[in-house]
Computed example of a mutant assay.
Amino acid sequence: TRSSNRSVIRGQWGMKGMGMGLALILGGDGFVPGFLLDRIWHLILPVICLAYGGFAFLAKLTRSSVLENLLSDYARTARAKGVEEHDILWRHVLRNSLLPLITVSATLLPSLLAGSVIVESIFSIDGMGKLAVEAVQTRDRELVLSVTLISGLLTLAGYLLADIGYAIADPRVSYD
């Protein structure tokens, strides 16, 4: 049994060695340990800068929508029937408060591309925002059209996700 365990361990190390060899061959400059973690570490601040404004707006919209729905007729009726406040908040109020959030969040995806121009210039990142600005400055029509196409596709994807979110949040919504 001891020799069979050794052969299994050797087989596992052989597979790991093959994976490392494949990574070295396909990697070009060679395998750099910790590259992914370093990249993630340096992208934390730009991601926070891009997402902070959208999240702040969504939080403000959530608060106002929940406060508005807490005083609505169906919440008062549920309280009068003796439903617990926790159930009223999570089952009734929050589901109806999600609809404006879903509407606004559909436009957040393409707006990240517009906001990335500033963040990319602050953090010296070569990205889509900087590419779009340079394409406009150099009057590269094809590149401007490509960036516009990608922005349009992101808008369509946001609207599609919003429609799916509507169907999940409100069971009365049906698409025929």
Rank of each mutant, 00 (worst) to 15 (best):
M18G: 11
S174H: 14
D140T: 10
L24G: 04
L94S: 05
G127V: 04
V173T: 09
L108I: 11
I88H: 01
T103I: 05
R91G: 11
L67R: 07
I168C: 07
E84H: 05
L108T: 06
D29C: 00
L108M: 12
A56N: 01
R6H: 13
G54T: 03
E85V: 09
S116W: 00
I118V: 15
L149E: 04
K60H: 10
A23F: 12
L149Y: 06
A51E: 03
G28I: 08
L89K: 03
D38P: 00
L70S: 03
A169G: 12
P171I: 08
L43G: 03
G34S: 06
I164Q: 06
T1P: 07
L70Q: 07
T1M: 15
G27P: 02
L61T: 11
N96M: 06
G30S: 07
K81G: 08
Y52M: 14
S146M: 12
M18V: 14
R91S: 12
G129R: 01
W41H: 09
L45I: 09
S111N: 11
E134L: 12
R63M: 12
F57H: 01
W41Q: 09
E142Q: 11
L153F: 14
L24M: 14
K60Q: 14
W41S: 14
L71W: 11
S121C: 00
L70E: 09
A169I: 10
T148R: 04
Q12L: 15
I40A: 13
I25C: 01
P171M: 07
I125H: 02
L131C: 06
S116Q: 02
W90L: 13
L36S: 04
V144L: 10
V104T: 03
G17H: 08
A167K: 06
T62S: 15
G17N: 14
L160A: 12
A51M: 10
G11E: 11
M18D: 11
D170Y: 01
D29W: 05
I48T: 10
H92T: 04
M18P: 00
C49N: 02
I9F: 10
C49D: 03
S97E: 02
S174D: 13
D29Y: 05
T1E: 15
W41Y: 12
I125D: 02
L101S: 04
D140F: 05
H92Q: 10
I102S: 03
E85Q: 12
G53K: 01
R39G: 10
G165L: 04
D87K: 04
L149H: 02
Y159D: 10
L43W: 00
